[in-house]
C-alpha cells in the first residue's frame, strides 16, 4: 500500500472548445471540455490538465468560465496551463476553481515570477512546465535544453539545471514535455525524464510521446516519473483509463482503481 502513480489526461482548449479532436464513443458533444473532463473523471483519471491555447484576450474570459464550469462538476485536481504570466492570471484561475496552474514561458523570461507565485499561493499549486529537447550529438553524453514557443526557440538553458532552479524557487511539481517526442507516439524521452526525476525532490509528470500502454509503464519504471500525462491515446479511445491502469498494475505499478 502506498501512493499511486497518477494518470493525467490533457485537454487542449481554444476559445472554450477542445481542439486536436477527441473521439470518445457515445459522447454527445465531442468539443465540450467539461463533458470530456467529467467522462475522464468517471473513468478514474487521477487529475485533469487543461491547456489553454487561446490567443485572444476575449477568449481568456471564455477560459475562466470553462474552468468554473469544470470545477463545479469535476471533483479531482484540475491544473490549468497556457498564458499564465502574472499573479493576477493565477488568482483568476484559482478563483475559477483550478487547483494548480502551470507556468511555462513566463518562467523562462522571468524566473522570479515562479518565486513570487509560490510565496503568494503556495508551492502546492505552482507547476512549472518544461519543454526540453535533446541537444547532444550521438555518442556524446546526453544533454537537453529548454525550448520555448512550442519547441522552436532554444534558450541555451540546460534542462536539468533549470528544473533544479525552478524547484529551488518554489515549484511544487514539474511537468516535463519532450519536444522531440511530442506527437510522435514513440514513447517519452526516458533519458531526460529520469535525469530530472532524480535531480529534484518534487513530483515529475512525464509528457510527450505516449502511443502505447508500455510507454506509460516505461515513463514510471525507467523514467522514474511520478505521473504520466497523455492526450491522444485517450481522446481517440485507443485505450481507456481503466485499461491503462490495469496494465500498469500488471507491471507492478501502484495505481488507483
Amino acid at each position: 500500500m502506498g501512493l499511486a502513480k497518477r494518470i493525467i489526461p490533457c485537454l487542449d482548449v481554444e476559445n472554450g472548445r477542445v481542439v486536436k479532436g477527441v473521439k470518445f464513443l457515445d459522447i454527445r458533444d465531442a468539443g465540450d471540455p467539461v463533458e470530456i473532463a467529467r467522462r475522464y473523471e468517471q473513468q478514474g483519471a487521477d487529475e485533469i490538465t487543461f491547456l489553454d491555447i487561446t490567443a485572444s484576450h476575449e477568449g481568456r474570459d471564455t477560459t475562466v468560465h470553462t474552468v468554473e464550469r469544470m470545477a463545479s462538476e469535476v471533483f479531482i485536481p484540475l491544473t490549468v496551463g497556457g498564458g499564465i504570466r502574472t499573479c493576477d492570471d493565477i488568482r483568476r484561475m484559482l478563483n475559477a476553481g483550478a487547483d494548480k496552474v502551470s507556468i511555462n514561458t513566463a518562467a523562462v523570461f522571468n524566473p522570479e515570477f515562479v518565486q513570487q507565485a509560490a510565496e503568494r499561493f503556495g508551492s502546492q499549486c505552482i507547476v512549472v512546465a518544461i519543454d526540453a529537447k535533446k541537444v547532444s550529438a550521438p555518442g556524446e553524453p546526453e544533454r537537453w535544453e529548454i525550448f520555448t514557443h512550442g519547441g522552436r526557440k532554444p534558450t541555451g538553458l540546460d534542462a536539468v539545471v533549470w528544473a533544479q532552479k525552478m524547484v529551488s524557487l518554489g515549484a511544487g511539481e514539474i511537468l516535463l514535455t519532450s519536444m522531440d517526442q511530442d506527437g510522435m507516439k514513440s514513447g517519452f524521452d526516458l533519458g531526460v525524464t529520469r535525469a530530472i526525476s532524480e535531480a529534484v525532490h518534487v513530483p515529475v509528470i512525464a509528457s510527450g510521446g505516449v502511443g502505447t500502454l508500455d510507454h506509460l509503464v516505461d515513463g514510471i519504471l525507467e523514467g522514474k516519473a511520478d505521473a504520466v500525462l497523455a492526450a491522444s491515446i485517450f481522446h481517440f479511445n485507443e485505450y481507456t483509463i481503466p485499461e491503462a491502469k490495469l496494465y500498469m498494475q500488471s507491471r507492478g505499478i501502484e495505481v488507483r482503481l
Partner: peptide, 21 residues
Amino acid sequence: GEDLQDQQGQSLKVPHMGWNQ
C-alpha cells in the same frame, strides 16, 4: 524530510502528492 524513503529504500518525493490509501 528531504531524504524520505520507502521500505525498499527508494527515495520518495516531497510533497506527498496524489492518491494514497
